[in-house]
Design a protein around this nucleic acid. Structure first.
Lengths: 105, 105
DNA sequence: AGGACTTATCGTATATTTACGATAAACAAT
DNA sequence: ATTGTTTATCGTAAATATACGATAAGTCCT
């Protein structure tokens, strides 16, 4: 983000922009789409479905996890990721609220 | 974004991530909020309501305009910005679709 | 024309993002 | 214990984002 004056904004503004930032890469959109469509959410499967190296996919998962949009559960040597329903609905209603009225000049 | 492999993703994925990127800064969230609440959308008013220099606000407006979330209309020496209803509803339904089902492991 | 006002653009320093290979860490199975 | 499998982390190069002052470009008014 570089030199951002985060302190000057409200918690709500910072949180929503942070969620948007987590969604601001096509790979992360695809990850969310896959997790929304299927329950089999092992990292290896995600790596197969993305045109990126394993290390890069892991980095993207970390970013989505950071803002709480997804959760990872350890399953033996594998890790299973899934959507976080609570965060999703919170984000969804915040966006609905942000775009509730239409004011145009 | 840095070294992004954009070509490897679908148009829909790129478009939605781009909209999210435009919303990935607290200042731009506040701009959208202000435009949603009021019809008086002159740049000067936005500058007054943001803790940033005029040049920086202009840059943020450009980013929101780039993805079509807002539109600017020249009004004499001033410029009046407003939300773009068509883009907003398109983005809203894309997000709804992305989070339509809940699959968890 | 000249001056005041409004907004966009340029130039630039610093911080962050993205991508990857290499490596570490943690488990399963022989 | 050693080997193979799976995922996270480290280190790093190149690109992008953020912020601002300075300046340009446009309008309005005497």
């Amino acid at each position: 983000m570089a030199v951002t004056k985060r302190e000057e904004f409200t918690q709500e503004e910072i949180w929503l922009s942070d969620v948007a930032k987590a969604m601001s890469h096509p790979a992360r959109i695809r990850i969310l789409k896959i997790l929304n469509e299927t329950n089999s959410c092992i990292v290896g499967t995600l790596v197969d479905k993305l045109p990126l190296a394993q290390a890069t996919v892991s980095q993207h998962l970390k970013e989505l996890k950071r803002v709480g949009l997804i959760e990872g559960e350890i399953d033996g040597p594998k890790v299973c990721y899934c959507l976080n329903l609570k965060s999703l609905s919170k984000a969804k209603s915040a966006i609905d609220k942000l775009f509730s009225k239409i004011g145009c000049c």
